[in-house]
Design a protein around this nucleic acid. Structure first.
Lengths: 192, 192
DNA sequence: AGCATATATATGTGTTATCATATATATGCA
DNA sequence: TGCATATATATGATAACACATATATATGCT
């Protein structure tokens, strides 16, 4: 049930339409740690209203389509506070690359190295993107909110950095070249 | 479509029933990077047969229920090789804790610290479990297969270690105590 | 004797997630 | 003029995942 709660959390910042939620939050930031498309957002809003966690008022939009502006009810605010202070289940890991490696005993080292290199490029791109966002974060908020956003972004940067370090370790053992030493952080991948 | 391919990869090791797949692979190792329950496995096997990537023979099981023993067809072997050498889409990140932190501006630091500490305990347990498995891995395989399994497990260990480092950083900024220095690896969570 | 567990497969159902399409109007650009 | 894009909501369809239950038999434990 994280999507409805995520939306509660965003509506707590300000009252919004489904369109606003998607454009201002899911397309920009939420998608990096909880993606949802338009259809999911509108259906989640319906469910929030059913639970009486949110309500909406219709604003006739002159030339534009009518806007359904959603805001939290008292129940919704209580539910949000409860959810925000209750530990959630850990995310399940589901990584196709690990499945591929697990089953790759019959694949040539060269092919494995190519697979790793291609994956590396995508993780590097992700990390670069996170760093670009990090550079402009301070212009988008301040105070505790900024602190929290930096923390969340920091998780992504840490995650991708460590994935890249692991990929480099893996690449070193499947490509002909010996592992260049000193350039990368050493990681503990062998039995202690 | 990773689950059918994962099963192709396992059937490539040896011909098996759905029950074997679950008991010997999904319950033990696959679940750490591609979980699937019994219903999903049996339905995936049906799909493999439809695609003509696998076929089965029925073994009358005397006292036990009949066994449908699945093995790869030539097409299935070709499909597996192709999949194993083709880069897959990166896993989507969907982490409830990050949603909670992103929306936690109105929550007291103490409550945030409690949330982080509870999550920390679960990630620590995961890491401990990975390390236990790592210690006994060499008894379960050898050669290239062992090398690959160590690599996959190393990914989990690296992932959880780095998540813990990030959590410690986060905890330090939300609990009263100043961050004890020197005990933890420094991570780059501030703008360069 | 009764109960849990193991072997083995099958199906029903609900929830989430993804993708596509429908509707209606306004603005800006080539 | 025409086409893409933005504003705004709604729904249909499918795939993937999760959870529960059904069936049938054997063994081992208390």
């Amino acid at each position: 049930m994280s999507l409805p709660h995520a939306i509660l959390g965003l509506l707590n910042y300000r009252a919004m339409t489904g369109y606003d939620l998607k454009r201002d939050w899911f397309d920009r930031s939420m998608r990096f740690f909880w993606p949802a498309d338009q259809a999911q957002i509108y259906r989640a809003l319906e469910r929030l209203v059913e639970h009486d966690w949110a309500s909406f008022t219709v604003e006739a939009g002159g030339d534009r389509p009518n806007r359904k502006v959603y805001s939290l009810t008292a129940d919704g605010r209580a539910e949000l506070t409860h959810w925000l202070t209750t530990p959630a289940a850990l995310p399940t890991v589901r990584d196709p690359l690990l499945v591929q490696l697990f089953c790759a005993a019959d694949i040539a080292d060269d092919d494995i190295a190519r697979l790793l290199a291609a994956t590396r490029a995508e993780h590097q791109a992700r990390l670069d993107n996170y760093r670009r966002i990090q550079a402009q974060l301070p212009t988008l908020g301040s105070g505790k909110r900024l602190q929290l956003w930096q923390l969340v972004l920091g998780n992504g940067i840490e995650r991708e950095s460590s994935y890249l370090a692991w990929l480099d370790h893996a690449l070193a053992s499947f490509s002909g070249d010996p592992e260049p030493n000193g350039s990368r952080p050493t990681i503990a991948l062998t039995t202690p």
